[in-house]
């Protein structure tokens, strides 16, 4: 544990009162993690567009400014480069910045700051300087957002050494992983699947309980096929697997990668060596997408275990559409068909 967090004996939140048996949404879980981080660590500072008085366009920062004040929960002017550039400066000066980029589609004005500066500071200074920070951003489709409110740009960042990329798929993971991201000595891009913000709900510990960055999550164990996914694709894969297990009596393993970078190669290889079949599901455009990297790892290190060709289910190689989103975005029927194809080889 990082020294900036209070010891675990004190890691109870004095201010959050709720029944731990009542499921909460992902956006509530994120809000709670931010609340507890602000409460326990005076260096944490939360900022972005519309995060203060309005509580964020998705309400992830609801109530934080009222509780912690305008100096620590800051409404920033409309400049993503300004937001991330400022985060770099804050981090170097000893703060723990949590910057929100309102939609992942709007991270590109800050691309230079992230890729050239934030991700490279430790390396270019040989470890002399670093800028640990968390960049939170909602990503992905499923809300009828069209070309510029639906993109999944994770692969631009997994191609960028020096910044970790984390994507939760459940309320509990969102809270636990975000708490760990806040303790990370390195910058973390924390991408939140906005389709899952308000449902489904899940049980989440009230006390701050970090979930380590790195290890993938075994969603369900199986013998015949390994499915690798993350974010909003996890419950799509689960729905498809449930149906297929009922109809075809097959046994499907689902792995939620959670931390995309650095990658949990061991879990991927162990699963494929067990099942001998692999399916990658992601909603970004297919070519050069994150699932392509998993495919390459399997091809390099586990090809002798394969009983069938590996397969990708992904978005088309186009920008994100509006009217025909339901065709574009991988859905359970399409995933099920791909599972059958790999299993029936």
């Amino acid at each position: 544990m990082n020294a900036t967090m209070t010891p675990s004996s004190q890691m109870t939140s004095s201010l959050i009162e709720r029944n731990p048996e009542t499921p909460i949404t992902m956006v509530q879980a994120i809000n709670e993690a931010l609340f507890q981080a602000l409460e326990s660590n005076p260096n944490v500072i939360v900022f972005g567009e519309d995060v203060g008085i309005s509580g964020g366009v998705f309400r992830a920062t609801e109530g934080l400014q009222a509780q912690f004040g305008e100096a620590r929960v800051i409404d920033m002017p409309l400049t993503e480069a300004g937001i991330i550039g400022s985060a770099y400066g804050m981090a170097v000066a000893g703060m723990t910045p949590v910057a929100e980029i309102q939609f992942a589609d709007y991270i590109f004005p800050a691309f230079d700051q992230i890729v050239s500066e934030v991700a490279k500071l430790r390396y270019r200074s040989g470890g002399d300087c670093a800028c640990p920070m968390v960049i939170r951003t909602p990503y992905g489709g499923g809300i009828r957002g069209g070309t510029y409110h639906s993109q999944s740009p994770e692969a631009y960042f997994t191609q960028t050494p020096g910044i970790k990329v984390v994507i939760p798929s459940t309320p509990a993971d969102a809270k636990g992983l975000l708490l760990s991201a806040l303790q990370s000595p390195d910058p973390v891009l924390f991408m939140e699947p906005k389709r899952l913000y308000r449902s489904p709900k899940g049980l989440v510990p009230v006390d701050p309980t970090p979930i380590p960055l790195g290890p993938a999550r075994l969603v369900q164990a199986g013998k015949d096929l390994s499915v690798f996914c993350y974010g909003a694709m996890v419950d799509i894969c689960q729905a498809a697997a449930t149906k297929l297990q009922e109809s075809d009596g097959v046994s499907i393993e689902i792995i939620d990668l959670r931390t995309l970078s650095p990658i949990d190669e061991a879990s991927i290889l162990a699963s494929v060596r067990k099942t001998g079949r692999a399916l990658m599901v992601y909603e970004a455009p297919k070519t050069g997408g994150y699932g392509s990297e998993i495919s390459a790892i399997i091809a390099e290190k586990a090809v002798e275990y394969l009983k069938a060709p590996i397969k990708r289910v992904a978005g088309l190689d186009t920008p994100y559409p509006y009217s025909l989103e339901s065709v574009y975005m991988p859905h359970p029927v399409r995933v099920m068909r791909a599972m059958q194809e790999v299993l029936g080889f």
């Binding site: 009828r144 389709r195 989103e325 339901s326 859905h331 029927v333």
Partner: peptide
């Protein structure tokens, strides 16, 4: 021919 609902709702 499959009438795909909006991705928010599962067709299964």
């Amino acid at each position: 021919g499959l009438s795909l609902p909006h991705p928010g709702a599962f067709p299964l």
